[in-house]
Write a protein that binds this DNA or RNA. Sequence first.
DNA 1: GACCCGTCTCTGGAAACGAT
DNA 2: ATCGTTTCCAGAGACGGGTC
Length: 316
Amino acid sequence: MMSSATLFDLQASVKDKSAFRQIEDYYALSYAFLNLLIEIQPTRIVSPNDPRYIFYQFDKTYRHKITRPLNSDLFIEATDDFQIAFERFISFLGDLKRFGQTAINKSSIQEYLKSNEVNKIVYTCQQIIGSIGDSFENPNQSRKRVGQLFENLVKLLIKEIGFACESRTISVPIPDSPDYMMSYELDLVFSKNGAIIASEHELIHPGEIIGSVKTTSKDRIDKIFLDKFLLTKLLGREIKVIAIFLHDVQRARRANSIFGINSTFKTNHFLGYTVALNRLDGVYFVDPRPNMVADFSLRSEIDDFQYLLVNDIWRL
DNA sequence: GACCCGTCTCTGGAAACGAT
DNA sequence: ATCGTTTCCAGAGACGGGTC
C-alpha cells in the first residue's frame, strides 16, 4: 500500500497511547514515514563536523522543523530495503526464540549478524518515531512519547525471543525508617523462566534482571549506577542491572553551522562509577559512539544491542 | 464514576563549564 | 574564541490515593 498519510497523521499515531502493542506497529509507522519522505522531499542536511550524521528539515507546512541527527550508517532510508530487512529481522527473532543461545553457533545466523541488521532496524524504527516527534508543536510531549515508545519497543523485542518482560514499580524498604518506602519504577524486569506471578509484582525475584532503557545516557547514566548500588544494598542481595541506550549524540550549534553534533556520553563518569561504585551487568548501545569501540576501557564494558539479544541475554 | 494532587519518570536543547 | 563535556531544566504523562 502506497502511503497517503501526512506527517500530521503520523504525529497522531505517535501520540496514540493505545498504539504500538506489537512490533509490526513500529514497521507500519516506519514504512509510512519513509514513503512520506519520498513524497514531501524534505531537505537532507549532512552534519559538517561528523558527515555520518544527517538531518531532515521539513518545509513550511511543518514550520521548517529539523529532525534529530540520524546516523546514516544505521538509518535505512530506502523503503524497499527497509521492508526486506524488516521481514528478515522478524524471521531472525523467530530463530533466536527457537534456538536460544545456540543460535549464535549457526553459520547462517553468524552471516546475518555481520550485516548489523538488528541494530539498523531498531535504530531506524526508533529514530523515525523521534523524527516525527521533532515535528511536534510541543517538544516535551515529544520527549515523553519518544521515551515511552523506545522502552515499549525493547520490551516487545525481549518478549518476542521468549523472555518474560514487564515494567514494574517496586516498593523498597528504607532501613531505620519503617514508615517510609521508596517507590522505584523499573523500566524492564525480565527473566528466562516463564510468566510473572501477578501477586508478586512489588518485588524482584531471583533470576530476574532489571533493564534500564533510555534513548541517550547523558547525565541520566548516574541514576542507573545508583539503582544497582541502592537496590543491592537495600534488598540485601546482588541485583543485576543492565542499561540499554539508543545513542548518545545531540545537535549542537557551532560558530559556522547550526547542524553540528556532539557526543553526550560521559566517559569519565562512566568509568569512575564502574570502578568505584559497581560494574553494571551489561551496557548496550544501538548506535555506540566511536570511542566505545576504540577505547579499551570502554570496549570491555559496552557492547551493541544486537550482541545483547544474541548472546548476553541468554547468559545473564 | 470523575477530578485533583503529589510523586516519579521521560527527554533534548540550552546553558555553563573547562581545556586549549 | 572555539568547541567538547557536563549540568540544568521545562513540561508531559503514568499512577496511586483522597474526596465527592
